[in-house]
Amino acid sequence: MIKDITIGQYFNGNSVLHRLDARMKIVLTVAFIVSIFFCKNFWSLGLMVLFTIQTVIISRVPLKMVLKSIKPIAIIVVFTSLLNIFYISGGTTLVDGRYIDITTNGIFTALFMATRIVCLVVISSMLTYTTTPTMLTDAIEKLLSPLKIFKIPVSTLAMMMTLALRFIPTLIDEIDRITNAQKARGANLDDGNFIQRIKALVPIIVPLFVSSLRRAIELADAMDCRCYGGPGRTRMKQMKLRFRDFAALAIMVAFIAGIIVLNYYFGAVLIK
């Protein structure tokens, strides 16, 4: 049922990855994404793939779910690969066509690009699979808190994110209710061409908008009543970096060092 949706794509589990501090996970994910672009030869690329696979195994997230996260980007991967194959020149020419050449450089670049994109998506989805949305927003708030000196209202932004997440299921319920009410009055939502269908959504979106505003006003009152904006907000759940977080950091540092070393020893695969 629509009520059973989980916000975000959190996969409930208790692996080491789940227990890592969310802040550390975000930092490590960013570090990994940057390191992806360091890989210059097949050895470092292989290390990256191995690291990605290892991460998936540790997370104990079912392979099916991981593959599901790659599915939407499959087209992009294929498309960029083809473009790279056809348009990158240099290296040994394999096919000498009239308009397009296929070169080793092209094929290698395509291979690198595809692997990089897939690894990037898999690792970022590992972050969202093993971290609840609440933990993510809390971590983002903490990580961005230095921006407070530039007068950026970080905690207000984090609160907005939390509320947005909180109200997704509520609004889905509401859409369900309004849709049924309009159908009961004879609204035809499923037939017609594209334009007609979009027009048919208007009687759903307008009431949804009105009721959302009403909700917002009530919510604001309720938050006022609970002293939001009061004297110095504290948090019940304190984030604490533990040994395992530093261990994870050490592994990431070793991984990046490994990639740099492999790059240095085996040189770049692309021929200028």
Binding site: T162, T170, E218, L219, R226, C227, G229, M236, K237
Partner: peptide, 26 residues
């Protein structure tokens, strides 16, 4: 309306909202 006064995505976080705003120690 209970839906319009719950602010957090987890029950205990919501109950903690008031005291957090009042600056009570964790």
């Amino acid at each position: 309306n209970p839906d319009n006064q719950i602010v957090a995505t987890i029950v205990e976080d919501d109950v903690a909202f008031g005291p957090e705003n009042l600056g009570v120690p964790p």
